[in-house]
Simulated scan of single mutants.
Amino acid sequence: MTIKIITPEYVVFEGQVDSILLPGKQGEFQIFKNHAAIVSALVNGQVKIYTDSVPEKYSKYFTKENEAKSAYSFAIRSGVLEFNNDKGIILAE
């Protein structure tokens, strides 16, 4: 599935991921390939993408997580997620 993470200043990430863990208003939730369409508000926390690697041009925005060999996190204050047809966009602050 394809994910794009955008802030007002720059594109944080654009590429293929295995899954993504997001901080929602009701708690964390994870999206995998073939997930149902969803629009959700995001709150202060960590967006974690699970992928083999982050392209070098985006790596400065992410922290490699110790929990899994393929987890990378990015801190947000708030945002919105739209996911449909294995494509997601996150507008984050």
Rank of each mutant, 00 (worst) to 15 (best):
I49C: 00
A41G: 07
S53W: 13
H35W: 09
A36P: 07
V43I: 14
F32Y: 14
S40L: 04
E65T: 07
A37L: 03
K60Q: 12
G45L: 07
H35Q: 04
D52S: 12
D52H: 15
A41Q: 08
G45F: 10
H35D: 02
A37Y: 12
V47H: 05
F62L: 00
S53T: 11
G45T: 11
P55A: 15
K33A: 02
Q46I: 06
N66M: 15
N44R: 07
I49L: 05
I49A: 00
V54D: 00
S59L: 08
S59C: 06
G45N: 06
S53P: 03
A37C: 03
K64S: 09
N66I: 14
Q46D: 14
K57Y: 15
T51F: 06
F32S: 08
Q30N: 10
K57P: 02
A36N: 12
K64F: 08
A37Q: 14
E65S: 09
F62I: 00
L42R: 01
V43A: 09
F62R: 00
Y50F: 15
V39R: 04
V54W: 01
I49N: 00
Y50H: 05
N34W: 14
A41H: 10
G45Q: 05
N34A: 13
N66T: 14
E56K: 14
K57M: 10
Y58F: 15
F32R: 10
F32E: 05
P55K: 15
I49R: 00
T51H: 08
N66D: 11
A37H: 12
T51N: 03
I38P: 00
S40D: 02
V43Y: 11
Y61I: 08
D52Q: 14
K60P: 02
T51D: 04
E56M: 07
N34Q: 11
E65L: 04
H35V: 05
L42V: 02
K48G: 01
E56Y: 10
V43L: 08
F32W: 13
Y61G: 13
K33Q: 02
E65W: 06
Q30D: 09
I49T: 01
N44I: 07
S40A: 08
K57A: 04
A36L: 15
N34M: 08
T51A: 03
Q46F: 09
N66C: 11
K57C: 03
H35C: 01
Q30G: 04
F32T: 08
G45C: 07
S40F: 07
E65P: 12
V43D: 07
N44G: 03
V43H: 13
Q46V: 05
N34C: 09
K57R: 14
T63H: 12
I49H: 00
K48Q: 03
G45H: 07
Y50A: 03
K33V: 04
G45M: 07
Y50G: 03
I38S: 02
S53C: 05
G45Y: 07
K48H: 06
S40C: 03
S53D: 09
I38L: 01
T63W: 13
N44C: 02
Y61E: 12
V54K: 07
I38W: 01
K64L: 09
N44P: 02
I31L: 12
F32V: 10
Y50R: 00
N44T: 11
S40T: 11
F32M: 09
S59K: 15
V43M: 10
T63C: 06
Y61C: 11
G45S: 07
K60D: 10
S53M: 08
K64P: 12
S53V: 05
A41W: 10
